[in-house]
């Protein structure tokens, strides 16, 4: 990858305040195609707000965001989505009154793909549901599926949008251990296929094992960034913001027996 190519997603100096709270405080990040950038940080660090800002749902007070060199921070959420930046939600948003497959069809119809026919959209939706292993629930009403299944549904809809950049806001929270493994493999595969992935996750070990780089947010500011090993070696950062225990767990266990489903502070569990 040459350094002269613009990153898929380039966030520069983004600031957002809610009243007295500085939810995001001058954060800069870049995600390249084929790369997973993990974003971690304690609750309230500003991770979801950052995702909201990139997707256009929240307007930043300052800063710039570019998608493949094109500024997108003044665009509305639907324009951002149609360009190819898809997102999932920490608090999932199944569209009630629509079945599972119809939820996913919405992604195919209105995302970057801009499918004109509902039949074609249904076919794409079926594929996306198969990718997250939710094909068997296609016709279910989305109010009748489990929390873990709504998470998968959310991801399937984002995939059906045919995104180039994927913003995943805690995609594994509430998903069972075995299913997490499927999703992790899927995410790694997506990155390999060339998508740029920004992964916000509470399950620290997962972030460490599958991210190419990790950024740590605290009180809205980025306090560290780099390859997982280096950030983990930054004792001070880790001790201060993630707790000693997790460093030990992460560093002492080899990556390949990493077991998903462990949450850094317990609120990511089902």
């Amino acid at each position: 990858m040459s350094a002269t190519v613009a990153p898929a997603l380039d966030v520069r100096g983004v600031v957002k305040g809610f009243g007295a709270v500085r939810a995001v405080d001058g954060v800069s990040l870049a995600v390249r195609s084929g790369e997973v950038l993990g974003v971690v940080g304690p609750n309230g660090a500003g991770k979801s707000t950052l995702v909201n800002i990139i997707s256009g749902l929240v307007k930043a007070d300052a800063g710039e965001i570019a998608y493949r060199g094109v500024p997108i921070h003044r665009l509305s959420p639907d324009e951002v989505a149609r360009l190819g930046v898809a997102r999932t939600f920490q608090i999932v948003k199944p569209l009630r009154d629509l079945s599972v497959i119809e939820n996913v069809m919405v992604g195919a119809l209105f995302g970057r793909r801009q499918c004109r026919s509902t039949r074609e959209a249904r076919r794409i939706a079926e594929e996306a549901l198969a990718q997250v292993q939710l094909g068997h629930r296609a016709e279910a009403e989305c109010r009748k599926i489990s929390t873990g299944e709504t998470k998968k549904l959310d991801l399937a809809r984002a995939l059906a949008m045919d995104p180039d950049v994927l913003l995943l806001d805690e995609p594994l929270a509430g998903v069972g251990a075995r299913e997490s493994q499927t999703l992790i493999e899927l995410i790694v595969g997506l990155a390999k296929s060339g998508k740029a992935i920004l992964l916000v996750e509470h399950v620290v070990r997962v972030v460490w094992t599958i991210s190419d780089r990790v950024a740590v947010l605290h009180h809205g500011a980025k306090i560290a960034e780099g390859p997982p090993k280096e950030v983990a070696a930054d004792d001070q950062v880790m001790a201060a913001y993630l707790g000693e225990r997790y460093i030990r767990e992460v560093l002492q266990r080899p990556a390949d027996d990493a077991e998903p489903g462990v949450s850094s502070d317990g609120d990511g569990g089902p």
């Binding site: 256009g56 749902l57 989505a81 919405v106």
Partner: peptide, 24 residues
Amino acid sequence: VSRFGYGLRSIKADEDAAACFGIN
């Protein structure tokens, strides 16, 4: 039954989310 109608039903369910899925 149309694409347009899917957009409307998404708006009814959750307007912010609908925008994030690419619906104007």
